[in-house]
């Protein structure tokens, strides 16, 4: 009983966020445009959660997480061009393609650590970006327009705004649960231990490399799934999916909610997508406001949004 209530308490931020997202269409956020925005936030939240597992769980600071996202989106394009639009093929296919990409690039990148890892993931992301731009069969730099969304069991469920909302929400919940279970498992403990001290992990008989590589590939698959959904949400895929700025955005989302906190990554993604939207309505040059906010939050908001109450409390007590 006690364990059950502890588990519930631990899961409550995630449940609260998912509950709010589930209720949103009925609380006056049901208009087409807001729904599009929410779907986009949920999709990017999936990618941010997977990055949060890598950064906070495994200590792998990837600045190229937009690449597996883009690979997933381009898998949708490649299958669409080949006439395959069944979701039961497209979504696993996108995840598998992204996992393969992450496996191949991770095999090199994870041999290094620290700042080398950051630079190499950035470089591989840029490689994917330029490669996508040279694929003239899929529109090259101009991108590729999808003339229909992916079907689900032969139905057009994803065309429907509310249907798409539920699919995104369901997948986000599944991703959160799986990542939670992964981090709590023996596998996750080895990951966290090798983040803290790889030498000791080796000393007790675990080699961190295969654990990290598998985590990198799995989280790549999650990003690929998010990419496939993003392609469906915008019905358009371009190399900009893999632009390194998006990798930076994802990293910001994963950090803003509090490093290593999975619901925090969801909150971060929601906050950033909505903030970008709001600022870009104010002015064309919204990045002039967004950039300083980013810098200030890195400098002063050390625990992310989740640590904000504690930080404010500390300020009040002191002063």
């Amino acid at each position: 009983m006690e364990r059950a209530s502890a588990a519930l308490r631990e899961a409550s931020p995630a449940l609260l966020l998912l509950g709010l997202l589930a209720a949103a269409p009925f609380l006056g956020f049901g208009q087409g445009y807001t729904m599009t925005l929410l779907a986009r936030a949920m999709i990017l939240a999936m990618a941010a959660v997977s990055l949060s597992v890598l950064v906070g769980g495994a200590g792998l600071v990837s600045l190229g997480h937009a690449a597996p996202l883009g690979v997933g989106a381009y898998a949708v394009v490649a299958l669409d061009a080949a006439g395959v639009t069944e979701g039961l093929v497209v979504l696993p296919g996108a995840a598998a393609a992204a996992a393969l990409f992450a496996l191949a690039t991770g095999a090199v990148a994870i041999r290094t650590s620290g700042v080398h890892f950051i630079m190499i993931t950035l470089a591989f992301g840029q490689m994917a970006f330029f490669t996508a731009g040279s694929l003239t069969a899929y529109g090259g730099d101009d991108g590729y327009t999808l003339y229909g969304r992916t079907e689900l069991f032969g139905t057009r469920l994803l065309e429907d705004r509310l249907g798409f909302h539920w699919v995104c929400l369901g997948l986000l919940a599944a991703v959160l649960l799986l990542c939670r279970l992964l981090l709590a498992s023996r596998f996750g403990r080895v990951l966290r231990a090798s983040r803290e001290n790889p030498l000791r992990v080796r000393a007790v008989g675990f080699e961190p490399y295969p654990f990290r590589l598998l985590a990198y590939a799995l989280m790549g698959a999650v990003a690929g799934l998010a990419g496939a959904l993003l392609a469906n949400a915008t019905e358009f895929v371009a190399p900009s999916y893999m632009a390194w700025q998006r990798s930076g955005d994802l990293l910001f989302m994963a950090i803003l909610g509090g490093l290593g906190s999975l619901p925090g990554a969801v909150a971060g993604a929601l906050a950033i997508v909505l903030l970008e939207e709001w600022l870009s309505e104010l002015t064309e040059h919204w990045r002039l406001i967004f950039g300083p906010l980013l810098i200030l939050s890195v400098l002063f908001l050390r625990g992310g949004l989740a640590g904000l109450p504690a930080q404010l409390g500390g300020l009040l007590r002191r002063g």
């Binding site: 910001f252 950090i255 950039g291 980013l294 810098i295």
Partner: peptide, 12 residues
């Protein structure tokens, strides 16, 4: 990680 993010903000 903080250095990457803050300098990314400077670029933006």
């Amino acid at each position: 990680l903080s250095q990457v993010l803050a300098t990314f903000g400077v670029i933006l």
